[in-house]
Design a binder for these strands. Structure first.
Lengths: 247, 247
DNA sequence: CGCCAACTTGATGGCTGTCAAGTCAGGTGG
DNA sequence: CCACCTGACTTGACAGCCATCAAGTTGGCG
C-alpha cells in the first residue's frame, strides 16, 4: 500500500523493482546479462509482491501465469495427496525461483508458503518466453535454472531413497550452510526458518526423529543447537557422516 | 555401421530420422508443431543412434551437448554417490526425453542405460535452443516438458517420503500401466524391462521387499505376476491401496 | 545338461515411527 | 510485571516395517 506520506521523498528508481540494481542479480534470473539486456528485463519484472509469514504465494490448482523470483525471505513448497498426506518438496531462499512446476499444466501443482515475511518479483511467463526468444543469454540461463531444479530433485530422491535419518539431516544442514554462504551469510551459524515437522516432512522423517538427530549431533560435538538457532562446529564431521555408509 | 549392402535399396527418406513421419510425434518434442515447423525440426534431429541392451547412452560426468528422444526401447537413469551407493532416478520409454539434467552444468549428472535394445534421436542442444527462439510452439512445448519432469520428480519425492512399500509398488505399477496405455499398448498386461533390484532402487526399497510385495499383490488378486510378466487384475484395488493411508 | 543371474521365501534384527509425558520460549492479558 | 497459555521442541518406552542374512527355486542361455 503506497499510502505512506514518505513515499514522495524517495526517488522512484529505488522503489521500482529493477533487476539492474538488485543485489541478487548474480544469483537470480539476470545472471550473465549485459547492462542493456538487464534493462529490458527491468521492464518485464515490474511487480513486486509482499508475502507475510505463513501466507500462500500460490496454491496447488491455481492458474499459472507467472514465476516468482525471491527478493527477500524464505519459502517452502509442498504437495498434497488426496488422502491428506503432504510433503515439503523444497525450501527456497533469496535469488531462487518459484513456480516452475506450473508451466507443464498451466496450473500450479504445489503450494508456496512464506516461512518469514518475504518479497518476490513476479515474472509473467509469456513475457519471459518472448524475451528469451530475443535474448540468447536469458534463454540459456533460464534453461539452466530449470535443469538445476531437476538435478536438485534427483539429489533429494537419492537422499530419500538411500540415506538414513542422520545422513539426511547432515546433508540438509550442509546444503543450507552452502546456500547461506553463497548469499554472503555465515556458513556456520544461522536460524532455521522452518519447524522440526517441516524439516521432517522434507526429509521423509517424523519430527521426533529430526529432534533426536539434532540432539545426537550436539552430543557428538558436530553442531550446537538451541531451538531454531544452529551453529555448525564440524563440517568435515558432518560430511563424513553423510558419505560413510556404515549400516 | 551402415556396411549393410541392403542399405542402397531402401529409400533414403525411410532411413533418415524424421520427426514428420515418426509415429511418436504427438508424444515427443514436435507435439503441436505445424507441418512446416516440423520439417525444420527434421533438419536438426539428423542423427539416430542405436543403443544395445545394458549399454550406456551417456555417463555421469561426460560433456553434455545433446538431449535424446527415445524412438524405441526402454532406459533407466541412475545417480551415484561417492561411497558407492546408487539410485535409479527414473525409467524412460518411447517418446520421452533423456539428458535434461545435463543442461545445468553442461555435463551429464547421471547415467542413462538401455534396458533393452533401443533407438534414440540425438538433438543437439544449442540447435534446439536456436530453433526454439524462432518457433514459439517448440519453445513453449520444451518448457512444458522440462516442467513436467520437475512435477514428476515431486511425485517420486512424495512416494519416497510418505508412502509405505506396498503403496510405492502400487503407484509404480499404475504409472507404468498408464504410460503403456498412452503408447497404445495394453494397460493391463506388460513385461517389466527392469529387475526387482532396479525397481527397488527406484522406490527406495530392497529387492526382497519388492518381491514380497509382488507376492502379496498376487495373493490378494490384484495382479498376476510371473517373473517379469505382469497382468494387472484390479486397478481400483491398487488405487485404493495407494490412497488409503492406514498406518 | 549345467551354470548363473534373477527371483522367492523364511527368520531375525534394527531403525525409525508411534504414543506419551514433560520442557521451553514467546506472546497475551490481567 | 508476572502468570498463563500455546505451539514447538525434547526425551523415553515400545512396536512395527523393512533391511539383512540365508537358503532354495526358477528360467534363460551357452
Amino acid at each position: 500500500m503506497p499510502s505512506n506520506t514518505a513515499f514522495q521523498e524517495i526517488p522512484l528508481a529505488v522503489i521500482k523493482t529493477a533487476c539492474s540494481n538488485c543485489n541478487l542479480r548474480e544469483l537470480c534470473l539476470p545472471m550473465g546479462l549485459s547492462d542493456e539486456e538487464m534493462h529490458r528485463l527491468d521492464d518485464m519484472v515490474s511487480t513486486r509482491k509482499r508475502v507475510k509469514r505463513s501466507e500462500h504465494l500460490y496454491r496447488a490448482g491455481q492458474e499459472f501465469d507467472s514465476i516468482y523470483a525471491i527478493r527477500s525471505g524464505f519459502f517452502k513448497t509442498d504437495v498434497l495427496l488426496e488422502d491428506g498426506r503432504d510433503q515439503v518438496t523444497g525450501f527456497q531462499m533469496a535469488g531462487e525461483l518459484l513456480g516452475l512446476d506450473g508451466i507443464s499444466a498451466e496450473r500450479h501443482t504445489c503450494n508456496a508458503i512464506a516461512l518469514e515475511d518475504s518479497e518476490v518479483c513476479a515474472i509473467p511467463f509469456t513475457r519471459l518466453e518472448s524475451l528469451s526468444r530475443e535474448i540468447f543469454t536469458l534463454q540459456h540461463h533460464f534453461h539452466k535454472v530449470m535443469s538445476r531444479e531437476i538435478v536438485r530433485d534427483h539429489g533429494v530422491m537419492m537422499l530419500l531413497g538411500t540415506m538414513r535419518a542422520e545422513e539426511r539431516l547432515a546433508a540438509f544442514l550442509l546444503n543450507l550452510s552452502q546456500r547461506f554462504t553463497a548469499r554472503g551469510f555465515s556458513h556456520a551459524e544461522f536460524y532455521l526458518r522452518m519447524t522440526r515437522e517441516e524439516i521432517g516432512s522434507y526429509l521423509g522423517l517424523k519430527l521426533e526423529t529430526v529432534s533426536r538427530a539434532f540432539s545426537r549431533f550436539q552430543e557428538d560435538g558436530l553442531i550446537a543447537v538451541q531451538q531454531k538457532h544452529i551453529r555448525i562446529l564440524d563440517i568435515p564431521g558432518l560430511k563424513r557422516l553423510m558419505t560413510h555408509h556404515t549400516p
